[in-house]
């Protein structure tokens, strides 16, 4: 439980900001505007992390999501210049709407109905603990994550290489 006028006001403000921005991703008719709304959602989530005293995760959220992923998405949009940018829905949009409403309509009553065992006083979760866990219990998944990142990096480079570059490389190898 989080008490105090400041945190409670911050919660409601962040909720309104995040959900309205997420709505903006849905309704904006320009793909660039949708990405800008998505950035606002990412920042709102970072604010939630701060409110939940996960300061390291808040910073990681800003750096990775706003700094890297949003920029990557913008790159993908400008690299596909002749694709339509109207952010339109497919014919299946009503089905998708039913799916979304069903998820929310099933989960929210379940959440409100459940008996959560919550703490009255919050535990301190310092970053040093997170680092110790990552390099202790979770060291194998941590290493696997670095392998995954390397593989994703190489895969992305291979996928976006232009056919011309590939031909040049093959020619060079044949000459050798």
């Amino acid at each position: 439980m989080i008490e105090g006028a400041g945190p409670v006001a911050a919660f409601w403000g962040l909720s309104a900001l995040t959900l309205l921005a997420a709505g903006g991703v849905v309704v904006s008719r320009n793909l660039f505007h949708a990405v800008l709304f998505l950035i606002v959602v990412f920042l709102g989530i970072a604010g939630f992390f701060l409110l939940l005293s996960a300061d390291f995760l808040a910073m990681a959220q800003v750096i990775i999501y706003v700094g890297a992923i949003a920029v990557l998405i913008l790159f993908a949009i400008v690299l596909t210049p002749r694709a339509s940018r109207d952010n339109a829905e497919t014919r299946m949009a009503p089905v998708a709407l039913v799916a979304g409403v069903a998820v929310a309509g099933l989960l929210i009553p379940a959440i409100l109905d459940a008996e959560w065992r919550t703490l009255s006083s919050a535990p301190a979760l310092p970053v040093s603990d997170l680092g110790r866990e990552l390099l202790g219990v979770w060291v194998l998944p941590f290493q696997l994550a670095s392998v995954l990142l390397t593989a994703a990096l190489v895969g992305a480079v291979v996928l976006v290489r232009s056919p011309r570059e590939e031909r040049e490389e093959i020619d060079e190898e044949e000459r050798r």
């Binding site: 997420a22 709505g23 998820v103």
Partner: peptide
């Protein structure tokens, strides 16, 4: 949950892969 539902709708309904 609300954010997840909005994300699900966007992922299922949008025409552009991005």
């Amino acid at each position: 949950t609300l954010l997840f539902a909005i994300g699900l709708f966007v992922a299922l309904s949008k025409r552009n892969a991005v």
